[in-house]
Design a protein around this nucleic acid. Structure first.
Lengths: 222, 222
DNA sequence: ACCTGAACACCGTTCAAGT
DNA sequence: ACCTGAACACCGTTCAAGT
């Protein structure tokens, strides 16, 4: 590193009013969504929160959707990390990887409903406009696919297309989060976590009755 | 029936400009959502479509959300009917009830994305404000619960809380519909229908490898 | 009873103008 | 380069007024 005090970077940002207006806007958006939901996200409100004109935002983001995409991107990074951590923890403790990933999934959604809404609330239309977003979402999904492949290699899952199986697991998790958030679930007294544990068991063992025991002899149990 | 021409009913509705402005507004809303999505639904647009002032609507609906709730109610009626029909068809043809209901579910969503969005898009906040809606949604869900109970009685599903199992099936179906609509699914070349068929198979048989054959003798197969 | 028109308090976005 | 202020074309909703 050079000794002198750091020279201003070429792309010194926000040297006008803020150290980093761009990140300040993202944080303000997050805080707004947390209190008022994505529906209550307004550029005027975001501007007011950071003490800046409502149009200053356009220097940093193409439009409102781009701001929301930025929030979603941060969310997907955290999401990806949460899934990876859940998988790693299961591997370390020799636990069930499917249950661990399911719990990590709904755990993230419960801990960060703000991010989850921005990521999956359907507000982002032209998904292609944000390649980073797509890439990060794909990376998170890959965590699921790899888990399936790993379980297959270890003989815990039967053979089958890992991507297809991962999509089914993802659909189950996502649907559960959405229905739960909408208050449409839990007509039983079980919480979402219990529901995930039960789902993992069903996905592993199936709904059909246990196959007949070998008829010849019953060992160890009367 | 009385012979004379029908006397005006007590609650003759819309005798001003339309035969039935209320239903006309609902139809206009449906058509608007079909072309522009729920996000593009505007009271001004609805009014213009039926040739009426943008405020005439308030004579028939409390607010915009109430109009949307009415659309969702019609949707839930159709949805309930579609699920019941799928179940009845499976029973008649002795087919797999789980697969049949899953296909009926995604089939409805594919055939009526407009309704599905109004029903599950998250635009309806105070769900309690529309008891009819809640009742009809519950009725549709009961179709799933009953199917599970029936399969259990017939010995095709193992014992377990039917509501819990139904919630898991519903979550899977809903998540698949949502992700599919958002274009996040189908990274494999399989369509949603194939995915549902695969899901039903996994839910029934489980992901784990088939249990060991009885070791004593291998019959019929080498 | 049913509908209209003006008005109010909001939006996102554009753009010429300031510093 | 970065931000502002006015302006534009929209919203949902209210309400006095018309017929």
């Amino acid at each position: 590193m050079p000794a002198k005090s750091a020279p201003p970077r070429k792309k010194a940002r926000g040297s006008y009013h803020h150290g980093d207006l761009e990140q300040a806007l993202v944080d303000a958006a997050l805080e707004t969504i947390r209190t008022a939901g994505v529906a209550g996200l307004t550029l005027r409100g975001v501007g007011a929160r950071v003490g800046v004109s409502r149009t200053a935002l356009y220097r940093h983001f193409r439009d409102k959707e781009a701001l929301l995409a930025r929030v979603a991107l941060e969310g997907f990074r955290l999401f990806h990390a949460a899934l990876a951590a859940g998988r790693a923890r299961a591997a370390r403790e020799n636990g069930d990887a499917l249950t661990a990933l399911g719990l990590a999934y709904v755990g993230f959604a419960a801990a960060h409903p703000t991010y989850y809404d921005a990521m999956f609330g359907g507000y982002l239309t032209d998904w292609d406009r944000y390649p980073e977003l797509d890439e990060e979402a794909r990376a998170a999904f890959t965590e699921l696919v790899d888990m399936v492949g790993s379980e297959q290699e270890r003989g815990r899952f039967a053979a089958g297309h890992p991507v297809e199986i991962a999509e089914i697991i993802w659909s189950l998790s996502h649907g559960m989060v959405m229905l739960s958030a909408a208050g449409q679930l839990c007509r039983t007294d079980a919480g979402t976590e219990d529901l995930i544990v039960a789902s993992a068991r069903i996905l592993r063992d199936g709904l059909r009755p246990a196959p007949r025991q070998p008829v010849a002899s019953a060992r160890k149990r009367s």
